[in-house]
Computed example of a mutant assay.
Amino acid sequence: MDLFDEGHSESLAIDDAEILLWRHVDFGEDKQLLERLIRETNWRQDRITLWGKSYLQPRLLAWHGDAGAEYSYSGITLAPEQWSDLLLDIKSKVEALSGASFNSVLVNYYRDHRDSMGFHADDEPELGAQPVIASVSFGEERRFVLKHRHRKDIENVVLLLPSSSLLLMAGETQKNWKHGIPKETRPRGPRVNLTFRTIITPS
């Protein structure tokens, strides 16, 4: 199947944001990719500091990228591991579809329904003023919730991100919106999410 024969992206009508969604991209066989990512990734579970308190992150993660693409958030700094062939293959397809280029990826492993991601914006200085974030999901479908940072009159936006979907956030999205993956009440299987981004390194 040709990568570009799978349908076009949808531009989501969300105020103060630029978000595109591809509901399915042919990265390969979903189940095999999920199993390979889980098996081949060197997972870590760090403690982060929020409001002066230390918490164990409710998921596993890994950081890969070009040399020097360090990433800092919530009191931790991640030095990049080398790209794997699998991650480079996924990255090349994401770049072909999105028209953007990326030098790093944060890989998150949600083991079951109890793993989650709190509300946050990818607005760290090293990502630049208008970062482009490309989010690829494999495995169990989970709710991706967007919450406006400034306007109380705008309701939260809930997206269901199926396996092999690609969500692209650009423009003022990180400035105006936070996003997160809430815990679920009913059992859920594993999900791996890859968020490709560009770290701006000092010249």
Rank of each mutant, 00 (worst) to 15 (best):
E10P: 15
W51P: 05
L167M: 12
P131Q: 07
R59Y: 05
A170P: 02
T49E: 13
H113P: 03
D66I: 04
N176P: 04
R44E: 07
S135A: 11
Y73E: 01
R111A: 11
G180W: 02
G99R: 09
K93L: 12
P80T: 04
Q130L: 14
L159I: 01
S101E: 14
Y110Q: 01
F119L: 11
L194Q: 05
T77M: 00
R186P: 11
T195D: 09
Y109S: 03
R143I: 13
A13Q: 14
V105K: 03
V25R: 01
G118I: 06
S84F: 04
I19E: 04
I48A: 10
I90W: 01
A96F: 10
R47P: 01
L106Y: 03
E29R: 15
A129P: 04
L159T: 00
I181N: 08
M169L: 15
R59S: 05
H24L: 06
W83N: 00
K93E: 14
S116E: 13
D15N: 13
L50D: 11
M117R: 00
D123W: 09
P125A: 06
I154V: 14
L127C: 13
S104P: 02
D5Q: 11
L166D: 00
I19P: 01
G7N: 06
K31D: 14
Y109M: 08
F102K: 02
N42Y: 08
V25G: 00
A13C: 15
I19Y: 01
W63I: 03
I14T: 07
Q57E: 14
V158S: 10
Q45I: 13
L106N: 02
R39W: 09
R142F: 10
L168E: 06
I200D: 12
I19G: 00
D26H: 11
E155K: 14
K183N: 07
T173C: 08
G189Y: 07
Y71E: 03
L78G: 07
D46W: 05
R44S: 07
I154K: 13
F4R: 13
Y55W: 12
E124H: 04
S163Y: 02
I199H: 06
K31P: 15
I14M: 05
G180Q: 01
I76S: 09
R114T: 10
L50V: 14
W43D: 02
T173D: 04
L106E: 00
D15S: 10
E10S: 14
N176I: 05
G68R: 01
R59P: 04
E6A: 10
L159V: 00
G171Y: 02
S9R: 13
L21K: 10
E95L: 11
E124N: 07
T41Q: 08
N103D: 08
P162N: 03
D5W: 03
R59I: 06
G7C: 08
S11D: 14
N42D: 12
V105D: 01
K178C: 07
A100R: 14
A100E: 15
R47M: 07
D46L: 08
V107K: 00
G139N: 09
S116A: 15
I181P: 06
E10C: 15
D46Q: 09
I76Y: 11
P190D: 12
D15M: 08
D2N: 14
T198G: 02
N108P: 01
S116H: 11
H64L: 06
V94E: 00
G139A: 09
